[in-house]
Design a protein around this nucleic acid. Structure first.
Length: 623
DNA sequence: AAAAGGGACAACCGCCCGAAG
DNA sequence: TCTTCGGGCGGTTGTCCCTTT
């Protein structure tokens, strides 16, 4: 299967993925999949399923992708899953879960930790913000990535598979460049971003919105300057970014825009949703270079003619206006001499065919000289714009030849192409360099591979320890609380219970989701009203709209995770409730069904349904 | 099959500009 | 007027991957 430059979007999944109806119903629209026999073992009845993320649909439904997260599995379970599914050991299985599940788990974990056991002395009163912060922290480190960042992870894993035995020398080098060193020294970090930094930035922007980039460092702990944060967000992490190569339609639009605007990449990006100025600039420069090398014109003739016509009309309009209205100070008719002068200068270098030039440059006196002749700095006759070869279809016959599937996708016509491979390449979400020095062996990724992973493993395995309170985070909360509460708190009401409202099982009035979104320590800073609207609440609103908001009379709390799940997964039937109450959510979280081993000794009183969990084995796909 | 070369691309940095205080 | 900040853009670098040898 040809996937272009990027192969990270191919995800072999376990059979459980296919057997879970809710996952299929909710996730599969985001994927294309093909089922293949197991080639490794001829007599094996198992079928491999190759799943490809459909980023066009992800982009069309941003609120859905926000609501899923991936969770790393403990290594033992991961190895077992790989073994069962005949996957190489370097492929790390992940669970795909609803983010609200993770939040609920974090909530209950914190709650359990802070609730005094029978006969135990009651704990000091703990500020709500600290409790919520602890839950938020646990949630964030359990979640490996939102689904949208899955590809980043995929790329890393593929790299790991290719790294057989990196020398210790390289590790030493990587240690020297340890970002922690820079953090400790207080200097601002430069260079590629790590996924951990990305996660922090995403969390910060999700919480506080865009803008005030210089405060990001102060409030989030990132050792990055504001501009670096802004660029990272704008060019890489923004959820509305359209990933993938430029489509022919976009390409044509870029050409048109460039013919009108010149190198105004930001303005062009504004006309192309999901594309960044940098992306367009890179595309244009590459395209220009390529076409110059091939001796092809920069602008197809039809665009030249179209722009020429447009500008002629504009000029007529302008002429009409100038004869009937006041002459604006901005009207460039006021200074034609400048344009003529520059035109003469350029004529000395190259007298182009009319079709070689952007129509805007030719037809309008309002254009600037740079765009009139966007020639390279070192002008050689062969490097200037070649004469159009006269074939009107030359340009788009090339691009359209591989675009039929694309058109089907972007036009929403998927029926005819559902069995076709995705032919365009997907962009890698992170610079590859950032992992290259940190990769260890294939079978056991180094903790330094990603600090996030380490945290995840620790977090997921937290319950395997003797005490749930082994979490340093919770200990820190307790410690800080004790510092804050110098008075005896035994007589004070249980804030946690009070916070949770009347429901002894669920976080009711302040759901875990709302708690997490409302109180996030070290991230708080702004105070806009939007900050109190959790991502989940937003998702619920979208979902409620989509499903007609049927239960208005019941006036559900839209921020409640159980409301989310009811809306997403249809029913709140008794059977479902029973199922949920009987399940061990962490077992489900870790894909227990598929492992058949005890990998989750949590004794967890669930507050949410966790019947829609499944694994994704992240690996090298077709490589 | 392996190595080398080169194109394509992503992403970063630095400089500059305009707006706001 | 100066400073700060956000943003735009050009240039550059490093990596991936395909093609050629």
């Amino acid at each position: 299967m040809q996937l272009g430059r990027s192969y990270g979007d191919v995800i072999p999944v376990s059979p459980l993925f296919l057997s879970n109806p809710t996952i299929i119903r909710r996730l599969f629209p985001l994927f294309r999949h093909t089922v293949n026999r197991c080639h490794k073992h001829p007599h094996c009845n198992r079928r491999d399923t190759t799943v490809i993320l459909r980023r066009d649909r992800l982009a069309a439904q941003p609120y859905r992708k926000e609501s899923f997260a991936t969770v790393a599995l403990p290594s033992a379970a991961a190895n077992q899953l790989c073994h069962r599914n005949h996957l190489p050991s370097y492929q790390l299985p992940y669970s795909v879960v609803l983010f609200v599940h993770v939040q609920l788990f974090a909530y209950d974990t914190v709650k359990k930790s802070l609730t005094p056991k029978l006969g135990e002395k009651s704990k000091p009163s703990i500020p709500e913000s600290l409790i919520a912060g602890a839950a938020a922290g646990i949630s964030s480190i359990i979640c490996t990535y939102p689904l949208e960042l899955l590809k980043t992870r995929l790329t890393v894993q593929v790299r790991m598979s290719n790294m057989t035995s990196e020398s210790e020398e390289d590790r030493t080098t990587s240690n020297k460049a340890d970002p922690d060193d820079e953090v400790s020294t207080g200097t601002l970090k430069k260079g590629p971003w790590t996924s951990a930094e990305d996660a922090i930035l995403v969390a910060y922007v999700t919480k506080n919105g865009e803008g005030n980039w210089n405060t990001v460092q102060k409030h989030s702990g990132l050792s990055r300057c504001g501009k670096s944060c802004r660029l990272r967000w704008a060019n890489h992490l923004r959820p509305d970014l359209k990933k993938g190569t430029i489509t022919p339609e976009e390409e044509r639009r870029i050409i048109e825009l460039h013919a009108k605007m010149g190198n105004k990449w930001a303005r062009m990006a504004a006309e192309l949703p999901g594309r960044t100025d940098n992306e367009i600039k890179n595309f244009w420069n590459t395209r220009t270079k390529r076409r110059q090398r091939a001796g092809l014109p920069i602008y197809p003739h039809d665009i030249c003619l179209q722009t020429l016509t447009d500008n002629a009309q504009t000029q007529n309009t302008a002429t009409f206006n100038t004869s009937h209205a006041e002459i604006s100070p901005n009207n460039t008719f006021a200074c034609p001499a400048v344009e003529f002068k520059r035109l003469e200068l350029n004529k000395e270098l190259y007298i182009p065919n009319i079709l070689d030039l952007p129509g805007g440059a030719l037809g309008s006196s309002t254009c600037n000289s740079d765009f009139l002749f966007p020639v390279p700095k070192r002008v050689r006759r062969a490097d200037t714009y070649p004469v159009f070869d006269g074939d009107p279809d030359e340009y788009f016959s090339i691009t359209c030849s591989y675009d039929q599937n694309l058109n089907a996708y972007f036009n929403g016509n998927t029926s005819s192409s559902s069995s076709e491979p995705i032919l365009w390449a997907q962009k890698s979400e992170l610079p590859s360099i950032q992992y290259s020095t940190q990769m260890g062996s294939c079978s056991s990724p180094l903790p330094s591979l990603e600090s996030v992973d380490t945290l995840i493993q620790q977090s997921v395995l937290m319950g395997q320890t003797k005490s749930d309170r082994d979490s340093g985070l919770i200990d820190a909360v307790l410690l800080q609380s004790q510092n804050l509460n110098t008075t005896d708190s035994s007589s004070q009401p249980d804030d946690w219970e009070a916070y949770g409202g009347g429901d002894p099982l669920s976080p009711l009035g302040h759901s875990a989701a709302s708690v997490l979104s409302e109180y996030t320590p070290h991230l708080g800073g702004g105070s806009s009203t939007d900050e109190h609207q959790s991502v989940e609440a937003i998702s619920v609103k979208h979902e409620a709209e989509e499903f007609g908001a049927k239960q208005e009379d019941e006036k559900p709390n839209h921020s409640r995770p159980d409301f989310v799940m009811d809306n997403w997964f249809g029913s709140s039937s008794n059977a479902a409730e029973e199922d949920y109450s009987n399940s061990d959510p962490i077992r489900a979280l870790l894909g227990d069904d598929d492992f058949g081993c005890d990998i989750s000794p949590f004794h967890y009183q669930s507050t949410g349904k966790l019947d829609d969990i499944s694994e994704i084995c992240i690996g090298s796909g077709n490589r």
